[in-house]
Simulated scan of single mutants.
Amino acid sequence: MHPGAECIPAHETLDRAAQLMRDSNVGALPVCDVDGRVTGIITDRDIVVRCVAEGHDPASVRASDLALGLVWASPDTTVEEALALMEEHQIKRLPVMEDDRAIGMISEADLARHLPDDQLAEFVHRVYARA
């Protein structure tokens, strides 16, 4: 897990989300409500495919408009459980949550750094094979 996932407020626009991703060198951001609770997640791919490619203006679409559904792990989720969640939901980033707040993010880069090659290869095959 990469600790310290920065949230973007649900009311912020996607152009601001893209700027935060660039500045933080990340590809995903948790979306938070006014109380700081995570309500979803958006990725750089969401912005491109579900906003820009569909002809929408990222300066007028809110983060909450794309943040649908939330799959997450808790701090005590095992590696095997996290991999199973990511494979089942075909996701490449998994927020780690505690008390409805993001405390970190598990990404493909984290997996690449910490998994044995055979386990990483199996994960990649399962996630990308159905994509």
Rank of each mutant, 00 (worst) to 15 (best):
A109M: 10
V124G: 00
R126E: 11
R62C: 03
V31Y: 05
H89W: 08
C7R: 10
L111D: 02
L68A: 14
S60E: 09
L14G: 04
R16D: 01
V124F: 05
C51A: 13
V49W: 04
C32L: 05
G27L: 01
E80M: 07
E108K: 07
A129Q: 13
M97E: 12
E6Q: 15
H11Y: 09
C7G: 14
E122R: 08
M105W: 00
A18N: 04
V71S: 12
S107E: 06
P30Q: 03
R62V: 00
A84L: 07
R126K: 15
F123E: 08
G36Q: 09
I103M: 13
A112G: 14
V48D: 06
V52G: 12
R45K: 11
A17W: 02
V61G: 04
D110L: 09
G104N: 15
P30I: 00
H125F: 08
V96M: 07
L66T: 00
D23K: 15
R22A: 10
D23Y: 12
D23L: 10
A17Q: 01
E122W: 02
K92S: 12
D65P: 05
G69H: 13
T43S: 15
A109R: 15
P116F: 06
A131R: 13
I47W: 10
L85W: 03
P30W: 00
G40Y: 04
E54L: 14
E12I: 01
R126I: 02
L20Q: 14
H125G: 01
M21S: 08
T78K: 04
L66S: 05
L14M: 06
R93I: 00
G69K: 13
E98A: 14
D23F: 03
V31T: 04
T13V: 03
D110Y: 05
D117Q: 06
L83R: 02
R130P: 01
S60L: 07
A63F: 02
E81I: 02
E80V: 09
L120S: 11
L115H: 13
V31N: 09
D15Q: 06
H89C: 03
W72L: 04
D76T: 15
D110H: 10
D57F: 03
H2W: 06
G27V: 00
D15W: 01
E87F: 00
A82R: 14
D118V: 10
G36M: 05
R16T: 07
R62A: 14
P75V: 03
P58H: 09
H2R: 15
I42V: 14
P58F: 01
L85Y: 12
G40P: 02
V79T: 15
D117Y: 01
S64D: 03
I103V: 15
I42D: 06
A28L: 02
V127F: 05
E12A: 11
C51D: 10
K92W: 10
T78C: 08
R130T: 07
D33T: 03
A131S: 14
H2L: 09
A10H: 15
H11W: 13
T78V: 05
L85E: 07
I47H: 11
M86V: 05
V61Y: 12
R93C: 11
D117E: 12
K92N: 11
G27Q: 05
E12D: 04
E12P: 01
E122S: 08
T39L: 11
R16E: 04
L94T: 01
A63Q: 02
G27S: 05
D100K: 11
L120Y: 14
A82G: 14
R113G: 07
